[in-house]
Design a protein around this nucleic acid. Structure first.
Lengths: 233, 233
DNA sequence: AAGTGGTCTAGACCACTCA
DNA sequence: GAGTGGTCTAGACCACTTT
């Protein structure tokens, strides 16, 4: 009984990872070709291909036609950061979510936002300020600008009961975005709404969103004192 | 000339995304089966399968045997966050990188770290403090604890010229980790090494790393004032 | 019980890239 | 020019889930 049961692509993948981790195939070395591996494991080349393709996506190996498959020397880890809606985050903590609109105004797009979104002069945007509470304690202050020309429906939405994040997600799903994380001091509005002393370090997330190369929205979300964003790789 | 050239899985994928974005297949709706799509596009089922599998990985659709393929109602975006070495980050800014070891001591594992890494009592760890400079200005302060029992080679490494991050990457590549981002005030060491007034908000990244379920290291990296971490999705 | 996606196979052709 | 991965096909069987 040399072979027990047929191997799947996941078995191949795991075994390759194994050999890389145990330095059977050291960093920088060249792996056998797909055909050789297929012969060794007794599977079709397509199966080996799928296994190695996944490892390439994970950044563990690089693949080149004619060049073969090589173990990456300095693996660039990729943490997957799930971007959820605030409501979900809070409800997953088993806390009670409460949303409150602070202000909603229709304004001419300020110059800095024009530049950031690359939209023409004189465009109009809806400016929103909102608070998100968890168990009645301040959780996140949200300041947002929505491009009226991309999302004209925004003029008919008052955002009194639904947060702009969730509303936009239903109106403009499947957009793409740029995100920036930073630490900022509590000043002005932030200090008041998040109920912290002036200068308190706060975790902040800025995001610019497009739908098919049309700028949709820019949002600045500032979290309560001590908030940690977590992930894995 | 009804069909020009044979379609690839990428064409299928893009066209499906297109139909989802334009609400031909609205959120929550059921897509045609793989066989139906294969017939429509004039390709093999495997090709449709690959296209839809990618969209499922991206979280745009969900797939269930017998249940079919369904457009996700509230897409959970996943930002891919490349975790690079500090040196790279700095060199990509076209700045000059400089590393300096502040302290290196062999100590008994403190209780809080024992709990965090889940290692037995009395274990020993190497405690490191380092500074990373960009163009001779403070960029990042790194405080790290390395588990001696998992990485015994650490006893022979003085870390005078090479940062522990890069060293560990060559000794223990392909590990997995938990990451937490937060905003902290500058105090004590941080304030001095990063040359900022006390209480300045600083961006901090904490990471716990394992290799095959053996705890390797815990690191706390605090960045200079105003640092932003950026990504896309 | 039936229908759907999940996977594998054997073969083929192509595209890239190295020598 | 030759070798490698990239992709596609047609068919098959399996595994899960709903009816």
């Amino acid at each position: 009984m040399t072979d027990q049961k047929p191997l799947g692509f996941q078995d191949i993948r795991d075994e390759v990872v194994n050999r890389i981790q145990t330095r059977v195939w050291p960093q920088g070395s060249l792996l056998p070709t797909e055909m050789e591996l297929a012969a060794e494991f007794g599977v079709a080349r397509a199966t080996v291909n799928r296994a190695l393709r996944e490892l390439a996506e994970q950044g563990i190996v690089t693949r080149k036609r004619k060049g073969g498959t090589r173990v990456v020397t300095t693996p660039v880890k990729q943490a997957k950061l799930p971007i959820t809606v605030v409501r979900q985050t809070i409800e997953e903590m088993n806390a009670e979510y409460r949303y409150a609109l602070v202000s909603r105004t229709l304004i001419d797009c300020p110059a800095w936002l024009q530049a950031k979104l690359n939209i023409p002069e004189g465009a109009q945007v809806v400016h929103l300020q909102c608070m998100h509470h968890a168990d009645n304690r301040p959780f996140q202050f949200e300041e947002r600008w929505i491009n009226v020309s991309t999302v004209p429906q925004v003029l008919d939405e008052d955002f009194l009961t639904t947060g702009p994040n969730e509303w936009l997600l239903s109106e403009v799903p499947f957009s793409n975005a740029e995100i920036a994380f930073s630490a900022v001091p509590a000043t002005g509005h932030l200090q008041e709404f998040l109920a912290v002393p002036p200068g308190t370090p706060l975790f902040q997330l800025e995001r610019t969103t497009w739908f098919r190369s049309d700028p949709v929205t820019f949002v600045r979300m500032t979290f309560h004192q001590g908030y940690q964003m977590r992930t894995t790789y």
